[in-house]
């Protein structure tokens, strides 16, 4: 197949990239643009570790054709914070030991960000609901929920 060029806003910067027409957004992010924070856990839409934001909506980038990102706004974990200027969610995950092996963390944080951008004051049950598509095999989720609740509390106090 002929390669095609897609152009989208990636972490705030307009980016054009030549891709194979059937490549997933995840493959393009990781293997063409070498943004490795977005993880590949299953390629089946089952684990959530490849979650990115497309126009502020959480999307499983393994299931989305990169071609469909043309003209859209894509945000990956790299786009929300890097040391020493971490996003409050990243700081809270670190402080709460919410990352153990770390493989699910990027997807978890992006799913949490999508929630908080829409609903800054979710209940614990609403947080759990928003993360239900993101699997973690290490932590048992408690520390992750605690971290996100910390950020909710900080935003209420701010």
């Amino acid at each position: 197949m002929e390669s095609i060029t897609v152009t989208f806003k990636l972490n705030g910067k307009t980016t054009a990239v030549a891709i194979e027409p059937l490549e997933s957004l995840r493959t393009v992010l990781r293997e063409h643009l070498h943004l490795h924070a977005t993880k590949a856990g299953c390629g089946q839409g089952g684990c959530g570790s490849c979650t990115v934001l497309v126009n502020d909506e959480p999307v499983l980038s393994c299931l989305m054709l990169a071609a469909l990102a043309d003209g859209q706004e894509v945000t990956t974990l790299e786009g929300i914070g890097t040391p020493p200027h971490m996003h409050p969610l990243q700081t809270a995950f670190f402080d709460r030991f919410a990352a153990q092996c770390g493989y699910c963390s990027p997807g978890m944080i992006m799913a949490a960000k999508a929630l908080l951008d829409k609903n800054p004051h979710p209940t614990r049950a609403e947080i759990a609901e928003a993360l239900a598509g993101n699997l973690c095999r290490c932590t048992g989720y408690v520390a992750i929920l605690d971290a996100i609740e910390d950020v909710v509390t900080q935003m209420q106090e701010a």
Binding site: C42, Q44, G46, C47, I127, A128, E129, L131, A132, G133, N134, L135, C136, R137, G140, Y141, V142, I144, L145
Partner: peptide, 17 residues
């Protein structure tokens, strides 16, 4: 063959610990 049939807990399934 996938997490569609191989069920592990999500954040919704955890008890009080």
């Amino acid at each position: 063959y996938s997490f569609g049939e191989y069920i592990i807990p999500t954040a919704l399934d955890i008890p009080e610990i």
